[in-house]
Each structure stands twice: as C-alpha cells, then as structure tokens.
Design a protein around this nucleic acid. Structure first.
Length: 290
DNA sequence: AACTGAGACCGGGTGC
DNA sequence: TGCACCCGGTCTCAG
C-alpha cells in the first residue's frame, strides 16, 4: 500500500522522465468506460472518460508534486493551468515504456487503465489492479474540497503544532492515537504501516486514547513518525503486495519494519497481537506497548 | 452545523 | 478445483 514514502519515490522517479513533456493523447481502458456507463466512476473521477481524454490532450506536464499521498501533475496549455490529481489507492502503479509489453508483471499489465502517449513517443501508463486509485482533472485544488482539508506536509515546520492542535479537538481527543495519526486531516501521509512502526518505537499501545498522551509524548511521537517516513523515503519505500515504484521498481523498507506484519516482537519475542482500529489491522506488542 | 457510522469501490490471496 | 470471504484508503451519504 503506497503511503507517503512510496508516493515520494514514484514522484522522484517519474519527475525527470515526464516533466516538460507534452501529452499527445490519452486512452482509457474499456473497464473505465463500462464502469462509467454503469453509473460508477472507476479511476476517472468528475469527468466522463471521453471528456477526460479530450481535456488532457495536448497538455504539457509542467511540474510533478507530491502532496500527502497524492501526486499532482501540474499541467499547462497555452497560458492556462490545470492539475491532474492521482492517488494510487491500494494498487496503482506508473510505468514509462515504449510498448506495454515491457510491463512484465502480468497482474499490472492486465489492469492497465490509462495510457498517456507523450510527444516524445514514450507511453506513460497507469495500471491499477483493484481500481481504488483515481485520476481527477481539476482547474484548482478548491475544485475538490477534501484536498483543502489535508494536514500540512509532515516535514513542514508547522506540521507538529498542527498535529497537536488537531489532536486536542474534541473530535479527535477521545479517539485512539492510531486512528488519529492515520487521519489525513491530522497528519499527512501516515498510513497503517508507518503508524504501526512509530507507535511501536514509542512503546505506545495503538488503542490508547489520544487525550491520555501528554504534549511532550505527542511531540516525540510526531518526530518518530517523521523519522520513520524519512527512513522509508531513503530506502525507496516498502514494497509490500501491490506497491511498485515506476516500471515495477522495488524499495527495501519492508526489511526494516519492526512491527508491521510481525508475528513476534523483535525486542521481547512475545507474540504480537492485533486489533482492528478504524477498519485497519493494528499489530502491536502487548508486552512493550502500553 | 457537525460529527458518526456504514457503504461503496475491487481482485488477489487465503483457507476451507 | 471452486468458492466464500478478507483486506484496505478515501470519499460520500444517510442518520
């Protein structure tokens, strides 16, 4: 599952290849078309597939930006600017190839949903096995209100104060700390993997109520989250199940995880336990985390 | 108005 | 071999 470090890796790999290039045309899969005809919106949001194909045509990819777990393709045509917002969902992946057969992993090749033909002749391909990802063409961020509610980037200097402020609101204070740090309106980009890791490092039980933590503990927890995210960025992200960097690349952070997916605590060897918090499996050590 | 919980979206993986 | 079920990031909508 791509979280902030994985998305950062994709953007860093994609940026030098696609920035400055022009999209000649886009072709969406039959699945996308059929879904829209059935009244759903697989992958392409807020536009009919045929409209989307026309909208993106001839746009220059001016800049790539990662914001939380989203990728913003800043587009430009004449003097007008637009944003193509992409979220990888559970299983989205980008490839840059000259022929889709170069995508060797069949499970991705079978689920190609958008092919952007660049003026350079390269194909920028979006594949998404579970179709939880999205491509959303907008004029500005305000066109999609949930984007306005995202917490600041975790490495932004105001992010820690923002986290503490949010965590003290009644809405969050009585929730479990795990649920709160995974909420994109509190901290950007921290999903299940890194929340699990950070709580283990801090020896905090994931079910602990947020208002039972002191400000000092919250500040330390925030630093630990940033450290874990940075360590993962430096390792190329965690390659778990369907996450791939561009062209199927893999990271190595999965080997450095100490609690996520573990059966035993690496410190005391006690069997780990898990709890479902906000719909997500939360693994923890009942001995170490209180 | 603001929050809460449920539902929706999916196919690979797992276990019976 | 087949099938039911589990899983999960985020938005939307009903209550």
């Amino acid at each position: 599952m791509p979280e902030l470090p994985e998305v950062e890796g994709v953007v860093r790999d994609l940026r030098p290849i696609v920035e400055g290039k022009t999209i000649k045309s886009v072709s969406l899969s039959d699945v996308v078309y059929t879904s829209h005809e059935a009244g759903k919106q697989a992958i392409v949001k807020n536009a009919k597939p045929s409209q989307f194909e026309l909208l993106v045509r001839d746009m220059k990819i001016d800049k790539l930006e990662r914001r939380s777990k989203y990728i913003f393709f800043h587009l430009k045509k004449d003097d007008e600017r637009f944003i193509l917002v992409n979220h990888l969902g559970m299983s989205g992946a980008w490839f840059v190839v000259t022929d889709v057969l170069e995508i060797t992993e069949e499970k991705f090749r079978k689920h190609i949903h958008a092919i952007f033909t660049l003026a350079s002749g390269e194909l920028l391909v979006y594949a998404d096995i579970r179709r939880f990802g999205e491509l959303r063409f907008i004029k500005e961020i305000a066109d999609h209100p949930p984007l306005l509610k995202m917490a600041p980037e975790p490495f932004d200097e105001i992010a820690c104060d923002f986290f503490i402020m949010q965590s003290e609101k009644p809405k969050f204070a009585k929730k479990s700390i795990k649920e709160v740090i995974m909420d994109g309106q509190v901290i950007s980009g921290c999903g299940n993997i890194y929340a699990t890791e950070a709580l283990f490092k801090m020896l905090i039980h994931p079910g602990k109520a947020t208002n039972e933590l002191s400000r000092e503990q919250k500040t330390m927890l925030f630093r630990v989250i940033c450290d874990v995210l940075q360590e993962s960025i430096d390792s190329g992200g965690s390659t778990i199940s369907d996450y791939r960097s561009i062209n199927g690349g893999a990271g190595t952070m999965q080997h450095r995880l100490k609690m996520y997916g573990k059966k035993q605590c690496v410190v005391c060897e006690t069997n780990t336990e898990s709890l479902v918090i906000a719909g997500r499996t939360s693994t923890y050590c009942p001995q170490c985390q209180k």
